[in-house]
Design a protein around this nucleic acid. Structure first.
Lengths: 196, 196
DNA sequence: TGACGAAACGAACGGTCGTACTATTGTAGT
DNA sequence: ACTACAATAGTACGACCGTTCGTTTCGTCA
């Protein structure tokens, strides 16, 4: 890895952490430069614009999400075990030390949902893939006979994601310690009703 | 209502609309002044600081939420009918014309969840009340015999709010038209499992 | 050793932010 | 009609924003 690539990776790592707390819009070139101990222009040279930086941060988040959540979960057996692995991995992801503000997609989504542009477009595409992945996991569980054949897998993904969002909300905003237990309890209810 | 109060109300109305799209942090004194056709300083004189303006906007949102969602729902019969009324009213609220970006609390929550200060404190207090209200509605349904006595009302509120958040996400970010139907389907499943 | 390209720097740009002042207008109450 | 005060306008400020530019440092290879 060349010097430039190293610096670039360091910038993106720091930017991702900051974005999970401040949001993509809360990122500033100057703030990042200070936090990394380099000049604004030196940092800026790695990105053509701030918008480009924001997209790169989303891309960095997506890459990490794949390697930390999706790929490991795919090693679990098809069906319900894999569904459980996804949930476990997602909770680990949300609590990762390099994401002090929790899942950056949750923060970015609320920020960008009504603000059109390339950054939003990129986020939407990432999130569509994520919803598809959840749905596919449920469909495989149907194929394996773990979930009922008549299960509405779209609805199932909608509700699972709702539990995850509620977890984020309760733990981050209301600071309730039982949020994870609530998420897991809801998950069990969701899995239970998918089985019959 | 004096002239000043009128102007103040007009400012807050506009600020609330903007905040539902841009977030509380996206509000700018200059932007509001332009949108209202008045000077920055004339507008600014109504508020001691931007932080004060943000809190006033939250207060305006809370007042409207009470009068548009809570109070009307309280007129419905105790128990399950009232629970249904809350959901219906909340959906109306989320789609209100003066909230072009949807529920401002959802936007503000993601924005402020990791940024301490008086604005966040105010939001947290409002949201705690809201969760209490949801929980109380469920508890009354238990008292009325509509929901099972052993129902965990905190868990119930956690899951209902998750459905609402997922609705916001699917409709605003992914722009899926069936989001409301998904929310209502999830609600029916939630009510159904609360009954037994 | 010398040349070259990548990487980072420092300074400066125009613009917008929140905020602080003073001046002017408008409106009630007498 | 005059006064007193609330409401708004005007202007200026310092700070920080994203961005541009010319220059300097430094590792790599001829």
């Amino acid at each position: 890895m060349s010097k430039g690539e190293e610096t670039r990776a360091a910038i993106l790592a720091d930017a991702l952490s900051q974005a999970s707390v401040l949001g993509l819009d809360g990122l500033t070139i100057g703030g990042l430069a200070t936090s990394l101990g380099m000049s604004k222009s030196g940092l800026y040279a790695h990105f053509g614009s701030k918008e480009d930086l924001q997209i790169q941060v989303l891309e960095e988040a997506r890459a990490r999400f794949v390697s930390e959540v999706m790929t490991p979960a795919l090693r679990a057996p098809r069906g319900e075990p894999r569904v459980r692995a996804i949930l476990d991995r997602w909770i680990t992801w949300e609590k990762a030390s390099y994401l002090p503000g929790g899942c950056p997609f949750v923060a970015a989504a609320a920020e960008l949902d009504d603000q059109p542009g390339p950054v939003r477009d990129h986020l939407v595409s990432v999130q569509r893939d994520w919803m598809d992945a959840l749905r596919t996991a449920a469909r495989i569980a149907v194929e394996e006979g773990h979930f009922a054949p008549e299960l509405d897998t779209r609805q199932w993904a909608f509700e699972l994601w709702g539990l995850a969002l509620s977890y984020h909300w309760f733990s981050r905003l209301l600071e309730q310690d039982d949020a994870e237990a609530r998420l897991r309890a809801g998950f069990e209810r969701l899995v239970g009703s998918a089985r019959v």
